[in-house]
Design a protein around this nucleic acid. Structure first.
Length: 425
RNA sequence: GGAGAGGUGGCAGAGCGGUUGAAUGCACCGGUCUUGAAAACCGGCGUAGGGCGACCUACCGAGGGUUCGAAUCCCUCCCUCUCCGCCA
């Protein structure tokens, strides 16, 4: 959520920032609502003050044993107008709130201009795409030859966009999760957490999935739950309605969860294989930091995610997303894109973002400032470290051999019983 | 699922229809004292909104209701604890 004070006092700044996202804020509509609110609030509060004063006088009179009938008659007339004003004010504030909740975050000054993914800028590149002296296969073909990847049976059991992994591939996915969790907890200073995979609407609102993106979520309406689309939601909401001590900052969490996404609006995209699924595993990094340190933290967090790719010997590049391609809540985002030989392209495998106070304001996630001792909004960040399903297919495709076997990178071997390769039966 | 007890400021914990945004303690901030610190003493110390300002308004788990007036009474929901049942 954008700071309402900024909205009221510096609408120009907000408007210019959101224009970089290609969004035209309806300033007139907002200002009309605000003007009405201001007027109605003043009037209603004056009425409340008047009622309160008289009620207090009645209390005093009765306390002295005097007759308060005249005062009570006086205040009775206020009732209807007061109730009406309060109701209208509440409705108005709701509308203003909905308007503000629907505004995305303002891009950071260092974010490049651009309206879609063609405006993203490459920051750096690591490793070189492999050159094969045979006809390279895609992960679907490799998976089938290994008897380890079955989309048809998954579709029978559930629907399209699900997969069944078995044998060595299922094991490799589990190994990847273990490897990532160990790397981030042992070397990068994260605390592992286990969290609910279903959350309530407040949590979804806190991180920004609701109210705007309900269509992207799987919901269980009977109980009022939503399946998490990323561990970001439960993990970041740990800080909701809390005031952390300055000494407990920064907090760094790493969390493995399945992620559930309806993928509404992406029909026909990435229909083949495991690239885009309704359910996938992800290891997520989340940081809660003091505001002055959040951009430094973003660089560090991105580096932590990159380490996974390097140790798995997967060529990748780092992109800074342009203003028009960033997610709703982000102020700045780096995408890590791993090379996928079957597509001859780099594909997103991690997204690392600084949300500044955007999520914290929605969640009322605060910390006690070291000097002032006052509660202040903290900054939230997160990044995939990494998307496990996509990491699996990147390994399969980049480390494949002519016979259809897959080389297990040395970093992963301890997690695979020291296997150096997995081969078709 | 059944029975009972609760949810109040950063924390603990009073208040149970009337000048209560809320006693008290701890924590925190400022001051006196001290070489410095501690202790003691004095003062301050919730969040949000409105107003140039004096000040006003809202908030005691959430939402409704009763009342001139609700932290206090009533209803619904959520959560916590104890006992019983069930269960991995």
């Amino acid at each position: 959520m954008i700071d309402p004070v900024l909205l009221r006092t510096s609408m120009g700044v907000v408007r210019a920032g959101l224009a970089r996202r290609g969004l035209d804020v309806d300033v007139a509509a907002y200002e009309a609502l605000e003007a009405e609110r201001k007027e109605l609030q003043g009037r209603t509060q004056a009425l409340q003050a008047s009622r309160n004063a008289r009620s207090r006088a009645i209390g005093i009179a009765k306390g002295k044993g005097e007759d308060a009938a005249a005062l009570m008659a006086e205040v009775a007339g206020l009732g209807e107008e007061l109730r009406d004003g309060e109701a209208r004010l509440a409705g108005l504030q709701q509308r203003i709130n909905d308007f503000v909740l629907g505004l995305p975050n303002i891009p950071h000054a260092s974010v490049p201009d651009g309206r879609d993914e063609t405006g993203n800028v490459e920051v750096r590149r690591w490793g070189a795409p492999p050159v094969f002296d045979f006809a390279a296969r895609d992960h679907v073909e490799l998976g089938e030859r290994l008897h380890g990847m079955d989309f048809e049976t998954a579709a029978k059991i559930a629907s399209a966009r699900f997969v069944i992994l078995s044998g060595a591939l299922a094991r490799m996915q589990r190994a990847l999760i273990q490897f990532m969790l160990d790397l981030h907890t042992r070397e990068h200073g994260y605390t592992e957490v286990y969290v609910p995979y279903m959350v309530n609407a407040d949590s979804m609102r806190g991180t920004g999935q609701l109210p705007k993106f309900a269509a992207d979520l799987f919901a269980i309406p009977e109980q009022g739950f939503y399946l998490i689309p990323t561990a970001e939601v439960p993990v970041t909401n740990i800080a909701r309605d809390r005031i952390l001590a300055a000494e407990e900052m920064p907090r760094r969490f790493v969390c493995h969860t399945p992620c559930f996404r309806s993928e509404a609006g992406s029909h026909g995209r990435d229909t083949r294989g495991m690239i885009r699924q309704h359910q996938f595993e992800k290891v997520e990094l989340v940081q809660l930091v003091e505001p002055t340190l959040s951009y430094q933290a973003l660089e560090e967090l991105t580096g932590h995610a990159e380490q996974v790719l390097r140790r798995l010997e997967l060529p990748y590049r780092v992109m800074v997303l342009c203003a028009g391609d960033m997610g709703f809540a982000a102020a700045k985002t780096y995408d890590l894109e791993a090379w996928l030989p079957s597509q001859g392209a780099y594909r997103e495998i991690s997204s690392c973002s600084n949300f500044e106070a955007f999520q914290a304001r929605r969640m009322l996630a605060r910390y006690r400032h070291r000097e002032t001792g006052r509660p202040e909004l903290l900054h939230t960040l997160n990044g995939s470290g990494l998307a496990v399903g996509r990491t699996l297919i990147a390994i399969m495709e980049n480390h494949q051999n002519a016979d259809g076997s897959i080389r297990v990178p040395p970093a992963l071997q301890p997690y695979m019983g020291d296997m150096t390769a997995i081969a078709p039966p």
